[in-house]
Design a protein around this nucleic acid. Sequence first.
RNA 1: GGAGAGGUGGCCGAGCGGUCUAAGGCGCACGCCUGGAAAGCGUGUAUACCUCAAAAGGGUAUCGCGGGUUCGAAUCCCGCCUUCUCCGCCA
Length: 424
Amino acid sequence: MHTVKSISKNRDSVVELLAIRDFNAAAIVDEIIAVDTEKREVQTRMETLRASINSLSKEIGILFKQGKRAEADAAKEKTGKIKEEVKDFSSKLADLEKRLSHLLVQLPNIPHESVPPGKGAEDNIEIRSGGETGKLSKDALPHWELARKYDIIDFELGNKITGSGFPLYKGKGALIQRAMISFFLDEAIRAGYTEYAPPLMVNEESGFGTGQLPDKEGQMYHVTEDNLYLIPTAEVPLTNIFRGDILSSSDLPLKITGYTPCFRREAGSYGKDVRGLNRLHQFDKVEIVQVQHPDRSYEALEEMTSYIETLVKKLELPYRIMLLCGGDMGFAAAKTYDFEVFASAQEKWLEVSSVSNFTSFQSNRLKLRFRDEATKNTLTAHTLNGSALALPRILAAILENNQTPEGIKVPEVLIPYTGFEMIG
RNA sequence: GGAGAGGUGGCCGAGCGGUCUAAGGCGCACGCCUGGAAAGCGUGUAUACCUCAAAAGGGUAUCGCGGGUUCGAAUCCCGCCUUCUCCGCCA
């Protein structure tokens, strides 16, 4: 969410930069400016009237104390009419504020100037890659068949217990998941992140704070009885830790991490890439989050990207890093890198991480600020987050890429965590 | 889930219909004092928005959150959230 102030001040550049997203903002921006002008006018008039009621009330109090009943009653009469007017203005003001916030939530974040323009995935730019996407033999199996062969993931049982998209991990399948969680958390801690284990359900305010509500309401599981949402990513509870806070600049950067299951309805995505572990309703993920000084958030984005790159390298997976084009970025992001690993049997790139700078977009919603010690000004902080990493697609790639006639080779770095070197 | 008691500034804590413009204390910042420090003394110490070219100044709102009563609400009424105590249930 943007502030009206920054939109009014930078009207033309806002419209220009949002075009990178293939988003025509001119009409909305102009309406925001018009509604805000009217709002301020109404607000000023209402507050002036309210001030006169306040001072009259004070006088009435004094008159009563002095025992001047008649004069007090006369003053009371006067306030009646003013009160009516205030009522009119305040309902008008409430209407205008509603219109304004309705308009504001329609504007996606403004892309960084380095974001390439474009409409969809085809316009993303590969900026780095690593590892060998070596060829497998003809009889190489996709991970869902390997999972059945070695009896480590049971999709049918998950289906029976819950439904499609809820796999059941067994034996070494469950163990390697737990190994990855520990490995990713240990790495994050070593990189300076503090571990949190947050709630898995969040309230409406938290959903709004990070931008899932109101736009992506249908993507979250909603427990209507208690009006709580199952988290689609740890980003939501982890970032909302700081909702409403005014930090000190010496607190920054805040670097936190957490493992959580993630729940996504994935409404409307049936039939596409849903085989096996490719797209699930429940999956595990370790997330990293930073709260940063605005001057350093893009530096931090690069740092987080490099960090995630070390993870995929340590797992010895062939990967590529994509700079998302404007049209493929999420609503709240100003710049996003996606990490994809190559699953050799499917011969498909699977997205395993998305790391984004949200600049002040989430902070404005969260009212997350910090006091700059040098200038004593209160400024809006920047938030960033990234998956480090999402487990199922990593597992899919490991299974497919590391298959041998003897079984699946566990990546070196995970062996201390799994206690075994082979699945098979 | 039931009953009772609470939620006041960075923190503690008073106030329970009219200078509340929220007492007092602690903390913090600055100044005085000092060779330096402590103590002491003094001054200051929230957030958002509006107004103003800007600053100064002025205004509005905020005492858990949302409504209501009243000329006037931290204070009275209603709903919700939350904390504590007791009971019930429970991994």
